[in-house]
Design a protein around this nucleic acid. Structure first.
Lengths: 331, 331
DNA sequence: CTGTTAGCGCTTTCAT
DNA sequence: ATGAAAGCGCTAACAG
């Protein structure tokens, strides 16, 4: 493996000083067209490229990089979030390095990124202790989660308010018996079963009923479809369904069509996430939209605030974003 | 904006040498537990975090970063590609910095990334000249495209072979009259109309017919649906359809169901891309799969080869990956 | 165990 | 228009 070409090699080869090489490469003026062209030519011949670390080390204008941890690239919610984040970050002058929790060890990914970013943002599956260890002192902005340790900041989504509003609106639309399709994930995730927050809020705000009409399914379109069939079979009187997320809700709507159940005529179906995809299907899927624009904007507000103090800020910063009800066709 | 805390500040405050501070922070041994703890404490108090550029400048173990340019985060093909790339890159020890063409100026994004990566990979919409300018000498691996300039490498997908095979297979399955739904994008993209490669290959291999049964639509589920209706109205004898991509194919399948057209009984529908989403719908969508695993693996093979020569390699490297026919239910 | 000495590769002064 | 000097902040190598 050939040793890397440095500015000195170019300077020597071109018979000029290092500074002249710098001038040529950075359009700095104070250099004749002739020498500039000659230096650039020699550079190209030698295959010289400035070392990015040396360059940034000495440059006064420190740039800021954020490590974005994306939950999963196979869930549109996360990819839409990532896309929104990338766009907003670029506008604010942040570099983004991404990693995904699903690609191997999250710990390894975070530890590696820790050497190259000023800040972490994202959805982490590590425990607070593991995460604290892995980030090596670099501040973290948790998305849709909360941790009060020093160095941890967060943007939360007030899903409780969203579900409360949704339940009230559905009631006003004439729904008499609410059902819910929950994710089966929380069952697998922890040894001791703990209901998802969505389920807790549903139970808190659903109309009074003899027994809660809840079934669980996998977090996919197919899972949503199966769950909808199960729900209809077990609780035929249900005329409104809150679904864990939009992918499952799309599956439920499809299953309803196959079953000959009219949507929203006989049953109103409401998802959670606000996926663009929900607009592409017929009928379009109504949803409690977790506003990704607002989410990433809040995260970057925190990022800017931290950067302003050179990341020496000690107090935890928190934001809350409100979900928006997106009434499309299915509810 | 407070000046950033450096290793010297910590050393002074803790009453030790810089080297001892380094030892404490990097678990290097040769340091007593007591001093280590004390140094770490002082560091935390001062809010010290090692400068990542200085660290990487001096570290012998140069790490490699690749800039991934993702076409669009609203197209599952690209996000699945990005996910696969992230996973593969992590395994091979590459850092990934991402940008998206849709987020503002592609030129600006590339120029900014150029200061921080050793290599570019991705789908670019810039012209060869603009791109050459923007990357500032950093090598580029083009995905699904080709450019023979020095410093440009590529991974191509042999779509022609894929479409040839698909046409033959469809014929063997009894299809008599092939139709195609093309993207309307190429019409908008260039002032002078040029058919998409998919269309050219379709026309090359479709069964002999009096006139080509081709309609165009937007690159979305809805666009695919509309196009399918138009196709059926104009060419009622068509019993096999090649669709520009899977999102459109899914829309076409849905439209067929609404129309009461049996899939694949009356009409066989075949998409392009190999989206996972095509497996989640009913009927599942058959497709010419553009193998993302193979695509990113080839790109990273090239990346490794370039890295091995410290990116001084001059000859253009090229790979070709073959599409795979994924027979699911719709064809 | 701890400190000293070099030097990574580049850009910024400031001379000439 | 060009060159010389002086560091950026950190870690490797060697002292003690």
């Amino acid at each position: 493996m050939a040793k890397r070409v440095t500015i000195n090699d170019v300077a020597t080869a071109a018979g000029v000083s290092r500074q002249t090489v710098t001038r040529a490469h950075n359009d700095m003026g104070d250099i004749s067209e002739a020498t500039k062209r000659r230096v650039l030519e020699v550079s190209a011949q030698l295959g010289y490229r400035p070392n990015r670390f040396a360059r940034n080390l000495v440059g006064r204008q420190r740039l800021r990089a954020v490590g974005l941890l994306v939950g999963s690239f196979s869930n549109p919610y996360f990819t839409e979030m990532a896309g929104a984040f990338l766009a907003a970050a670029a506008k604010r002058g942040w570099q983004v390095m991404m990693a995904s929790g699903e690609s191997g060890s999250e710990t390894a990914a975070v530890e590696m990124l820790a050497r190259h970013v000023d800040l972490f943002v994202g959805h982490f599956s590590l425990s607070a202790e593991e995460l604290t260890e892995a980030v090596q002192g670099i501040p973290v902005v948790l998305l849709d989660d909360r941790c009060s340790r020093p160095g941890f900041h967060s943007v939360e989504i007030d899903l409780r308010a969203g579900i409360r509003q949704a339940m009230a609106a559905l009631e006003a639309k004439g729904v008499r018996r609410m059902g819910m399709i929950d994710s089966s994930y929380s069952l697998r995730a922890s040894p001791t079963y703990s209901p998802s927050p969505r389920r807790r809020f549903f139970e808190e705000f659903a109309l009074e009923v003899p027994e809660p009409a809840i079934v669980v399914g996998e977090e996919s379109m197919a899972g949503g479809g199966h769950a909808f069939r199960a729900l209809m079979a077990e609780y035929p009187d249900v005329d409104g369904v809150l679904v864990f997320n939009d992918m499952m809700a799309i599956g439920a709507v499809q299953a309803a069509q196959a079953l000959g159940v009219e949507i929203p005529g006989q049953v109103r179906i409401l998802g959670v996430d606000g996926l663009t995809l929900g607009e592409a299907v017929r009928p379009t899927v109504s949803t409690i939209s977790l506003d990704r624009e607002a989410l990433v904007a809040s995260a970057l507000d925190i990022a800017d605030a931290l950067a302003a103090s050179n990341f020496t800020n000690t107090e935890s910063l928190h934001r809350t974003v409100m979900p928006r009800l997106l009434w499309r066709e299915s509810a």
